Computed example of a mutant assay.
Amino acid sequence: MTLSRYLDECAIRAAAVLGHGVEASISLREHGISLRAGSSTPGAGRCDQAEARADTGPCIDAMRRGTVLTTRLADMVPGWEAWQAAAEAEGFVQALAVPAEVGPGARVAINVYSRTPGDWPAGLVDAAVGHAALAADAVRLQLQFADLGDAVAGLYRTMTDRATVEQAVGAIMASNDCPEDEARAVLRTAADRRGLTEREVAEAIVRTLVLGGEGDVIGDLDR
């Protein structure tokens, strides 16, 4: 099973286990790039895509801070307008964002969405923490396999700079449902902010998302 499919299934299982009619989406951040990695429903996925494209929202802020965040859609949070508009359009009234560490500079988070107002049921937050940890374990394992796999390592290291960047741009476009120029700008900005080449940032994306899935792309990365 590819990583992208596993994270989709992880989001589906999380929503089913958490119950209470919730929906879930998983985001991954690495090298300052946010991508939607898996979702239990298209609606939850669209919310995370809007958040990733704006580079701000509960899931991204939770990963940046390393803390669990809860929010009600009725409470306007400055900077979250794009995510909030998407969540309201889907009929959600509140969300819970739970981050988990993958490794240095890389985190995942699970966004839990609900159309029912009121306090989160007892035990739901703890269960969401557990599912976020499972998603982080899956990404960590993928990176370890990429490190150990000579065939995989040899493949991405012998790819030309152009081919690597094109693969990464395609992954960003597919994950966040954004146009090519926006995906290229995301890659370029992430490289500039960290003093890295576009090849270095693109290689991280290809290594984690593309080669791990035999050409399949998944969604969300870290800052």
Score class of each variant (00 low, 15 high):
Gly79Ala: 10
Gly79His: 00
Gly79Ser: 09
Gly79Asn: 04
Trp80Gly: 11
Trp80Ile: 09
Trp80Asn: 02
Ala82Val: 14
Trp83Lys: 06
Gln84Lys: 09
Gln84Met: 14
Gln84Ser: 15
Ala87Asp: 09
Glu88Lys: 15
Glu88Trp: 06
Glu88Asp: 05
Ala89Leu: 08
Ala89Val: 09
Glu90Asn: 08
Glu90Met: 14
Glu90Ala: 10
Glu90Asp: 15
Phe92Pro: 12
Phe92Glu: 11
Gln94Asn: 11
Gln94Ser: 15
Ala95Ile: 02
Ala95Asp: 13
Leu96Cys: 13
Ala97Ile: 04
Val98His: 11
Pro99Phe: 03
Glu101Pro: 08
Glu101His: 12
Val102Met: 09
Gly103Met: 14
Pro104Cys: 12
Gly105Gln: 14
Arg107Lys: 15
Val108Ala: 11
Ile110Trp: 11
Ile110Tyr: 06
Val112His: 09
Tyr113Ala: 05
Tyr113Cys: 09
Tyr113Ile: 00
Ser114Lys: 02
Ser114Phe: 03
Ser114Ile: 02
Ser114Val: 14
Arg115Lys: 14
Thr116Ile: 10
Thr116Cys: 01
Thr116Val: 15
Asp119Ser: 13
Trp120Arg: 10
Pro121Gln: 09
Pro121Asn: 10
Ala122Phe: 06
Gly123Phe: 02
Val125Ser: 02
Val125Cys: 05
Asp126Ser: 13
Asp126Leu: 05
Asp126Glu: 15
Asp126His: 02
Ala127Ile: 06
His131Pro: 00
Ala132Cys: 09
Ala132Gly: 06
Ala132Pro: 04
Leu134Val: 14
Ala135Asn: 01
Ala136Glu: 08
Asp137Arg: 13
Ala138Ile: 01
Ala138Tyr: 08
Ala138Cys: 06
Ala138Leu: 07
Ala138Thr: 02
Arg140Met: 01
Arg140His: 14
Leu141Pro: 00
Gln142Lys: 14
Gln142Phe: 01
Gln142Met: 11
Leu143Cys: 04
Leu143Ile: 04
Leu143Glu: 09
Leu143Ser: 02
Gln144Val: 08
Phe145Ile: 11
Phe145Thr: 11
Phe145His: 12
Ala146Cys: 07
